[in-house]
Simulated assay, not measured.
Amino acid sequence: MRNGKIRVGIMGLGQIGRHLYHLALEKDDIEIVAVADIGKPEIIEYLLKSDGVDEPSCKLQDNYLINDKFRTRMLQLARPEDVPWDVLDVDCVVDATGRYRRRRDVEGHVRAGARRVILASLPSEPIDRIVIPGLNESHAASADKMISAGSATTNAFALLLQSLDQSLAVDCASMTTVHAYSSDQSLQDYAHEDFRRSRSAAENIIPNNNESARWVEAVLPKFAGKLSGYALNVPVQRGSLLDINCVMQDAGVTVNQVNDAMRAAATRHPNLIGVTDDPIVSSDVIGCRQSLLFDARATLKAGKKIVKVLAWYESLGHACRVLDVVRQYSKLDGNGGES
């Protein structure tokens, strides 16, 4: 930390990475001191300016992206171990590539001098800790070096499940995320290691595996072996939807009780959970900074114990949670950070 600011390095300035850059400009407690990306710095500057965010303008000058609040060293590098994080004197690195999820890849950042690494995605194998704001941030420890801030889907699922379970007792649940297409999908049919993901994201609803249920079970062990999840990637750029079927322990649970439980959760965690009674669609959730926006109009009771609920979310909300985790660990290190 220098001059009261948390010094953050980012690897990968895709959608989440650019959200992080824009969000850092809104406050005075974080500065993005370095960005590593496979793209040319000139292209990164162009994309940031094309995001349509009203904020102080940035300008590329001598390999630095400069704005009114901080200047960012731009590095065109592809691998975690290639970035000189020690020389850059960062407090933590956020890996927003979505690519380097194995433990040995995350360790590459540490070997290159990163004091702490926070994945903006789920890991592919166990690391020090997964931290989901609103759920288990109190478990964070200063000794943690490799952390995941979950994913947009995982965090929304976990928060919704915990909220309903605390109030009404959930026995088990299944989840389908109707998810905006992602940057690793091709817009045209193109050979991919997965058959279905070889098809055009712009033209198809594509069934896909999803890891969220497994990691929610790890964070909420009482649900071990009781959760399942699937994904449908759809031709939408931003705005995703969770469709969750919960088997309740009490057959007497009503739709109104479910909606009231989520309203109470939103009151307890207004920065994380929202509730809407409006007939919204996916584009209406763009710009939502909460982890989930519960759709009260959509709650259904099916049979005796099954309740179906819908909740909306988008990538900006997850970027906000990533920075929540950055600030949480800065506090543990005795460096303050915005509350």
Rank of each mutant, 00 (worst) to 15 (best):
D284M: 04
A202G: 12
P221D: 02
C246D: 01
V219F: 06
A213S: 14
K59F: 15
V255C: 04
L13E: 03
F195T: 04
I16R: 02
A298C: 12
A191D: 12
L242W: 05
R71H: 12
E211A: 15
D144A: 14
A213P: 11
D62W: 02
A96H: 05
H22R: 12
K226W: 02
H139E: 10
A141P: 06
H269A: 13
I44G: 00
F157D: 13
N210K: 09
K27I: 07
V307T: 08
S183L: 14
D250E: 11
D51W: 11
N136M: 03
A36E: 08
T176I: 10
R102A: 03
I30Y: 04
P80H: 01
S282Q: 03
I43C: 01
R18N: 10
T97H: 02
R101S: 04
I118K: 06
A112P: 03
A34T: 09
S282I: 00
N63T: 10
M11I: 02
V234H: 04
I280M: 13
R214T: 12
K40R: 06
A264P: 01
D165G: 08
L65R: 08
S282A: 07
W312L: 06
V247R: 11
A24Y: 01
L65S: 10
A224C: 08
V94K: 00
V307M: 15
W215H: 14
S283K: 02
G98S: 04
L160C: 14
Y313M: 10
